[in-house]
C-alpha cells in the first residue's frame, strides 16, 4: 500500500506525542504528583499509532494496563488524561479510574483495563453493536502475549468468529524471542507455540505476525484487517512483536544506543529523513509542539483540584441508589 507523506508525518507525530507524554508522567510519578506507578507503553508506540490511524471516534478500542499509548493515539484529551493520572476531579473519569480504568467514550476509548485480558470480551459487545446497527464501524481489542492465554480471549476469538463480528484482535507480543514477561523471572515458557497468531487458525480466522517496531508494517496490516472487518468479513488476529524500552526522566525521546534497533520512533525518523519527508526543522517543530501540548496538560493537571471526599460515594449507580 502506498502511504502518503501526510499520513507518515501523522504517524510520526502520534508516536512522539505518546513518548513525550509518558516521559512527563514518569517525572510526575517521581515527584509524587501521580500517586501510583503505571504500566508504560514506551517502545510500542508504532502499534497504537498504526492501529488508531485507521479508526474514527465512532470506532472503539478496548485496552490494557499499558493503555496510555492506545488512549493517546485514539485521541483522548491530554489534559483530561494527565489530570486523571494525578487523581484530580478534572480527570477524564473524575479521579475514579487512574491509569488502569480510563474510559473516554467521546473518542471511542472503552477503556483501559486492570484485569489482564478483561477488556477483550467487552470489545465483542462494541463489535456486536456495529453489526446490529449495520453502520460499518469496527472495534479493536488490544492485549498482550501474557493475556493471550486467558480463557476469556480464547472464548472471544471463538465467539467473534462464530458471529462474524467486525473485530480486530491486536496482540502486542513484548517478549517475542524469549517468551517471558518483562520484569518477571519465569522459568517455564508462557506460550506453547511459536507465534500467538498461530492460534487464529484454531478459530478459522486470518492471522499473521508482524514487526511492531515498524510503523508502516503495522499501518498496512491493520488497514487490511480493518477493511476486511468493515466489509463484513469478520475478525482477524494480528500479532505485533515489540520491545519495551526504558523511558527517562530527562524528557528525551531518544533511547539508549542498544535499544535503538527496536525503537519505532528512531527507526521511522531515519526512514522518513532518508525519504526527504522529515527535515531537521520539521522534526524540531513537531517535537516542540508536542512537548508544549504535554506541558500544558501537566500544568492543567497540577492546577486542578482534588475531588471532594464525598465524591467517593457518588456514581455507584447511574439510575439512583
Amino acid at each position: 500500500m502506498e502511504i502518503d507523506e501526510e499520513t507518515k508525518i501523522e504517524l510520526y507525530t502520534t508516536m512522539v506525542r505518546i513518548r513525550t507524554f509518558e516521559n512527563r508522567a514518569r517525572i510526575l510519578i517521581r515527584d509524587g504528583e501521580i500517586p501510583a506507578r503505571s504500566g508504560f507503553y514506551t517502545g510500542q508506540e508504532a502499534v497504537a499509532a498504526g492501529v488508531c490511524a485507521h479508526l474514527s471516534p465512532s470506532d472503539q478500542i478496548g485496552s490494557t494496563h499499558r493503555a496510555l499509548g492506545h488512549l493517546i493515539a485514539k485521541g483522548c484529551d491530554l489534559k483530561g488524561l494527565m489530570a486523571e493520572l494525578c487523581g484530580m476531579s478534572s480527570g477524564l473519569n473524575k479521579g475514579k479510574a487512574g491509569p488502569y480504568h480510563i474510559f473516554d467514550p467521546s473518542v471511542g476509548a472503552l477503556g483501559a483495563n486492570g484485569i489482564v485480558g478483561g477488556s477483550v470480551p467487552m470489545v465483542a459487545g462494541y463489535a456486536l453493536t456495529h453489526q446490529l446497527r449495520d453502520d460499518g464501524g469496527v472495534a479493536v481489542s488490544f492485549y498482550g502475549e501474557g493475556a493471550s492465554n486467558q480463557g476469556g480471549i480464547q472464548e472471544t476469538l471463538n465467539l467473534a468468529a462464530c458471529w462474524n463480528l467486525p473485530l480486530v484482535f491486536v496482540c502486542e507480543n513484548s517478549s517475542p524471542e524469549v517468551q517471558r514477561m518483562l520484569g518477571h523471572e519465569i522459568d517455564y515458557p508462557q506460550l506453547s507455540i511459536e507465534r500467538v497468531s498461530d492460534r487464529a487458525q484454531a478459530y478459522g480466522i486470518p492471522g499473521a505476525t508482524y514487526d511492531g517496531w515498524d510503523v508502516l508494517e503495522v499501518y498496512n496490516a491493520v488497514g487490511d484487517a480493518v477493511k476486511w472487518a468493515r466489509e463484513g468479513n469478520g475478525p482477524t488476529l494480528l500479532e505485533f512483536n515489540v520491545h519495551q524500552i526504558e523511558g527517562n526522566l530527562e524528557g528525551r525521546i531518544e533511547v539508549r544506543d542498544d535499544e535503538r534497533i527496536w525503537c519505532p520512533i528512531h527507526r521511522f525518523k531515519e526512514r522518513i529523513t532518508d525519504e526527504g519527508i522529515l527535515t531537521t526543522e520539521l522534526d524540531e517543530k513537531i517535537r516542540d509542539k508536542e512537548k508544549s501540548k504535554v506541558e500544558e496538560a501537566a500544568e492543567f493537571a497540577l492546577r486542578s483540584t482534588v475531588p471532594a471526599p464525598i465524591e467517593a460515594f457518588k456514581g455507584v449507580f447511574a439510575g439512583g441508589p
Binding site: Q60, P121, M122, G125, Y126, L128, E155, T156, L159
Partner: peptide, 19 residues
C-alpha cells in the same frame, strides 16, 4: 457458544454502546 465469560462480557460492551 457455551462461553459465559465471552457472552457476558459482550453484554457489558453492548450495554456501554447503548444497547
Amino acid at each position: 457458544p457455551i462461553t459465559e465469560t465471552a457472552f457476558i462480557g459482550m453484554g457489558v460492551g453492548a450495554a456501554i454502546m447503548g444497547l
